[in-house]
Design a protein around this nucleic acid. Sequence first.
DNA 1: CGGCGCAGCTTAAACGATTTAGTGACTCGG
DNA 2: CCGAGTCACTAAATCGTTTAAGCTGCGCCG
Lengths: 305, 305
Amino acid sequence: MPRSRVTLKDVAAASGVSTATASFVLNKVTTQTIAPATQERVRRAAADLGYVPQGSARALREGRSRLVLLNAGRLPVTGSLRSFITGLDTELSAHGHTLLVRHGATTGIPARTGEGALKQAVDIVDPRAVIDLVRLYADEDPDRLDGGWIDGLAAHTATQIDYLIGRGHSRIGFAMPADERLAGIARLRFQQACAVARGRGVAEPVGVTGEAVEMPAGVTAVAAFDDDVALRLLSVMADRGLRAPDDLAVIGFDDSGYGEMWRPALTTVRIDAAGYGRRAARAVLGFPLDAVAPDPSIVVVRTSA
Amino acid sequence: MPRSRVTLKDVAAASGVSTATASFVLNKVTTQTIAPATQERVRRAAADLGYVPQGSARALREGRSRLVLLNAGRLPVTGSLRSFITGLDTELSAHGHTLLVRHGATTGIPARTGEGALKQAVDIVDPRAVIDLVRLYADEDPDRLDGGWIDGLAAHTATQIDYLIGRGHSRIGFAMPADERLAGIARLRFQQACAVARGRGVAEPVGVTGEAVEMPAGVTAVAAFDDDVALRLLSVMADRGLRAPDDLAVIGFDDSGYGEMWRPALTTVRIDAAGYGRRAARAVLGFPLDAVAPDPSIVVVRTSA
DNA sequence: CGGCGCAGCTTAAACGATTTAGTGACTCGG
DNA sequence: CCGAGTCACTAAATCGTTTAAGCTGCGCCG
């Protein structure tokens, strides 16, 4: 019963042509003309038999597979990363490709076990492309296949800071993550925040850690690196009997989904991560990017700021 | 410079043997004896050239690749799933295999787009095995390659319920998730909770939804399906001015990492998910399971219960 | 009517690994 | 000195695709 896999040979035999012809038809090769009637026969046979090309054979022949590998390291897949992945996945599969994600202890430090594991995965699947979030976040990825995610960050940081300024805050703190691996991208965001403030004629934000709740004198609001940092800050504040937004306004970044469960509910910035995912897919496949523009980021106003 | 991939042929040529011999050496084939000196030469050459076998060629020949595919659907990868993946990954890579994860809109309902996408992924990579969490959680997976995760659930549910009973609660609620896709596994957990209570001579828990905070008369504690449900309940309680644990004790399940940021911090059950991951890896590879037993689950006592 | 061009196929050679079925060169017992 | 039995190794087939190159008739031009 479990008749083995249907191969191209089966399709060819069933439609009375050679495998070459069948391949030409099914791949819509333009360098070769095939009679319409023949095309029809082949397509029918393929459909009837339920033929699906074997990826490994194809990959062997073509030197690379139709897979795209996303290295997510140990990043939690919630909020925007989840959306990013979804966008990436839908756009890729619309073009016959498949997204697979590697999670694991990749350290970002070359020649550590994690790096080796990624390399191994790459060698095994011969992916069409690799999107390495770990290196991207460590700010050392030469070819950023992120669909403009990193580049878009400046505008989203502006969304965050502008909201605070618009609410009348003129002395702002910027809460950095504790995780070393995020240091690169955190520094970037901090610089962006400073630039925005300068542009608005407001004092540059002061960097603070998410844990320490003692704010430098005069700071009335904190923009957090992400929702995680914001939530951690909120909980430390609660321990000290401080409430947001009255004692200190707190705005997160990159709506993680957990902020809305908190009390006070976390005000945050929502980014069209799925849009960036779709763009990343196009970048990877070599398509023009201008066709898809992610929506601008918006502030999800809840209670904390 | 980008000299193309090092193949087995290169290794064979460099060590003056045929590809067959090289293959025998590198795969430690026992049906064939090779002179120690030759083995040494081949291994050196492979190392020097940086040879890595090409997965697609191997997969083509063997009919399946050395990949294991985990279908995570739209599940958030935090807490225990993250640990499960880590355990799976380390154990698999210790045996020359690689774990890749598919995220996406898989619906669990056959013949929907999601299912098709998974099938496509499977066809492309010819994985050694597929662990389908979506089907597993929908309770319709015939061959459960989960390392005993589902089977272990009964004991962990007991950990959760017993804690509440030990704290003197005799009328307990069980908070179910709103997500339809978790209905199967939620029902299972609820039944387990009932069984535990019966065994302890306590009234069976009443099922409640995570959102509704009105508890049936006399209920003093709630065991949640997972931390997410617990957190949601906690926030609804906060809105009504109710505090845990005094007004209602709440215990989560499957420590997600976000519970400790909440105030009151969420008491929950921590499961050795990494252990189950390692077992799942062994199950997939056909190794005996008894060698690895996951640690028993423990209660992480914080404040909410 | 010879030959050219073209539409519509097929043949066969890759791709890089694994593995079956040998093949020589030895040794050893009788 | 022959036959059998190891040992150490190789030749070649194979997996399923893609694709360059070749082949065959037919129509048409000069």
